[in-house]
Design a protein around this nucleic acid. Structure first.
Length: 277
DNA sequence: AGAGGTTCTCGGGCGC
DNA sequence: TGCGCCCGAGAACCTC
């Protein structure tokens, strides 16, 4: 599900729902989701009595702040947060419940159980896994054309796997990387180090543009994504290549192709994105 | 039946 | 031989 635009949308909607609520207790049904502290009891005890004071985001990670702690949460493929009345029944994919002092509770649901949670004392979170080695935010001043140029020139990988690496840049996932490469006219299997200065400039511009347009539209709903208020995104209507195998390229009219690159399903236009050598 | 929006771990290959 | 880095493959889990 969630790449940067979806996580940013979850951050905004979840803030409206749980800001200022106080955690009375927590129930953990699938302890493997909690990666730090190792003991689930410690996780629960730490957060008891804590009030939600802010919700942030770093790349695809959500950071729920209480007065003392930072809860770093990754939704991976299918993780979802939702606010429910305590009286509502919960399904078998609900793995963590944060019981608030009012009659509501925050439920974490995750069909594939890939999601993770790390709890740290506030201020330590950026110096620890999983945030410590992340690359720059695409909307930050650190993410410049020169930075992208330097990084791509130093790797032997193909451009698509390079851009999916969150150490190079945070936020891109399989959907937005395919969209970005199409918009920049770059074949996903080009060697990253072979890109020209002009191509890097276009790539940088389209990374920022694609992600910011997607944030404005509330993300993309492909299979199951909904924000914390249960609403779908709208950017899937703007997708130019992702999920459009065998359909017409909106730029040149030829047939779009789907292959595998770096083990990931990859959509592109063989005419607009040439694999020059 | 196999792929699926993610990322961690592991092992092979290579250079020093 | 050893170490460290880089990279790709496989694994984590469930649904359709």
């Amino acid at each position: 599900m969630p790449e940067l635009p979806e996580v940013e949308t979850v951050r905004k909607t979840l803030t409206k729902l749980i800001l200022d609520k106080t955690i009375e207790n927590i129930t953990v049904y699938w302890p493997k989701i909690i990666k730090n502290p190792l003991e689930v009891e410690q996780f629960i005890d730490a957060l008891k009595g804590e009030r939600i004071v802010d919700i942030g985001r770093r790349g695809k990670f959500l950071i729920i702040y209480t007065k003392k702690y930072a809860l770093v949460s990754h939704l991976r493929m299918e993780g979802k947060y939702g606010l429910y009345q305590k009286s509502e029944p919960f399904d078998k994919h609900t793995h963590v419940i944060f019981h608030f002092t009012d009659d509501t509770e925050l439920r974490y649901r995750d069909v594939r159980k890939f999601g993770t949670m790390h709890l740290y004392v506030k201020g330590e979170e950026f110096a620890r896994e999983p945030l410590v080695h992340l690359g720059p935010e695409p909307f930050s001043a650190d993410f410049t054309v020169d930075y992208l140029q330097t990084k791509l020139s130093k790797t032997n990988r193909k451009v698509k796997p390079a851009l999916l690496d969150q150490k190079l840049l945070v936020g891109l996932g399989n959907i937005y990387v395919d969209e970005t490469l199409f918009r920049a006219g770059i074949h996903p299997e080009r060697l990253a180090s072979s890109l020209t200065k002009k191509e890097i400039f276009l790539l940088h511009r389209e990374i920022v543009a694609t992600l910011s347009e997607a944030v404005e539209k509330g993300g993309s709903t492909i299979r199951s994504y909904v924000n914390s208020q249960g609403e779908i995104g709208m950017f899937q209507l703007e997708l130019l290549v992702y999920g459009r195998k065998d359909e017409e390229c909106k730029r040149c009219g030829r047939t779009l192709i789907k292959t595998t690159v770096g083990g990931r399903g990859t959509h592109y236009c063989p005419h607009c994105q040439k694999l020059k050598l």
